[in-house]
């Protein structure tokens, strides 16, 4: 095939690196999803839109108010945390006692609300974020990595590393998992369950906003960029809904796979590959590669 004729190993390496770059952003968004699921067992279908609203808030600070990057980003994270907290308090907590499907449906409604809010303020037109990452391309050996891809990969990696460390070494990680397993029992041992809920939504909103800023810096922002969330669902299902490590590995793998398949067979095969993997994982390990397998003691 003609497509394969000019293929050399540098080309493959470059494609792989670009794929890992996208994958790291999927992984970061996946981590935001996982944090909510880990603590509250809520499947948050609005994770892509929470990412998008983060990107637009950053746009507002960086382009609208002309603030420098180092000020705009912390402010964005702060505003996102508040948004996450408000969503939890007003839409999720009142439904705590109801069945999980109604909460799931509410997150579908949330996607429309967030898209609507963004379109009211910034219209549906796609926009570019101001450049804030260094411009010079990075070379790894002979392979070239576009600057934005490289730096956003590094930032995403740092973000995921922080989350991993926090959950491995901080007592609050235990509180999150305990709350997810059994809410009544968690409060019976002194865990502030509503506090854990609010906290997990706030953290997830911040992580999603960071992912949104990075995704937006690579590809621009628009009110429909939440569609990125679709690939993220595949990532978290493959990795395991409650596993941060799973989101990391599955994110990188799926990003890489999509890039390679796109390069070798053409863009129309990307989703075929992704969803084939999803199907395979669901058949072989329905709880994901790293997810918790419900313990049934006989």
């Amino acid at each position: 095939m003609e497509r394969w004729a000019q293929l050399d190993w540098i080309d493959l390496v470059e494609t792989s690196l670009a794929g890992l770059g996208t994958g790291s952003l999927m992984a970061l968004t996946g981590v935001a999803f996982v944090v909510i699921y880990k603590a509250t067992r809520v499947i948050n279908l609005a994770i892509g839109e929470m990412m998008m609203i983060g990107a637009f808030v950053f746009y507002g600070f960086a382009a609208g108010f002309q603030l420098p990057f180092w000020l705009a980003l912390p402010l964005t994270l702060l505003v996102s945390a508040v948004v996450g907290g408000v969503i939890e308090r007003t839409m999720i907590r009142p439904l705590l006692k109801d069945n999980p499907v109604s909460v799931f449906m509410v997150t579908i409604g949330l996607t429309s609300i967030l898209i609507g809010m963004v379109e009211l303020i910034w219209t549906a037109e796609p926009r570019r974020l101001p450049e804030f990452l260094p411009q010079a391309p990075i070379f790894i050996g002979e392979a070239l990595v576009p600057a934005k891809t490289g730096y956003s990969f590094l930032i995403a990696a740092a973000g995921i590393a922080v989350m991993l460390l926090v959950f491995a070494f901080w007592r609050g990680g235990v509180a999150l998992r305990a709350t997810a397993t059994d809410r009544a029992a968690a409060s019976s041992v002194g865990i502030n369950v509503p506090g854990v809920f609010a906290f997990s939504w706030m953290v997830a909103a911040m992580v999603a906003a960071l992912a949104g800023v990075l995704v937006g810096s690579v590809g621009g922002i628009s009110s429909s960029m939440g569609l990125f969330g679709l690939s993220v669902f595949v990532v978290v299902i493959v990795g395991g809904l409650d596993s941060i490590v799973g989101a990391l590995i599955a994110g990188l793998f799926i990003g890489w796979l999509e890039a390679m398949v796109g390069r070798l067979f053409g863009g129309e095969f990307k989703l075929l590959a992704t969803f084939s993997i999803l199907l395979l994982v669901l058949v072989v390990r329905p709880y994901g590669l790293f997810g918790t397998h419900e313990i049934e003691r006989l």
């Binding site: 998992r177 059994d182 968690a186 041992v189 002194g190 502030n192």
Partner: peptide, 15 residues
């Protein structure tokens, strides 16, 4: 908490 270890169960109670 079935998915947590024995020690993590005790850690949860430290709250």
């Amino acid at each position: 908490f079935a998915d947590l270890t024995v020690e993590e169960n005790l850690t949860a109670a430290t709250f």
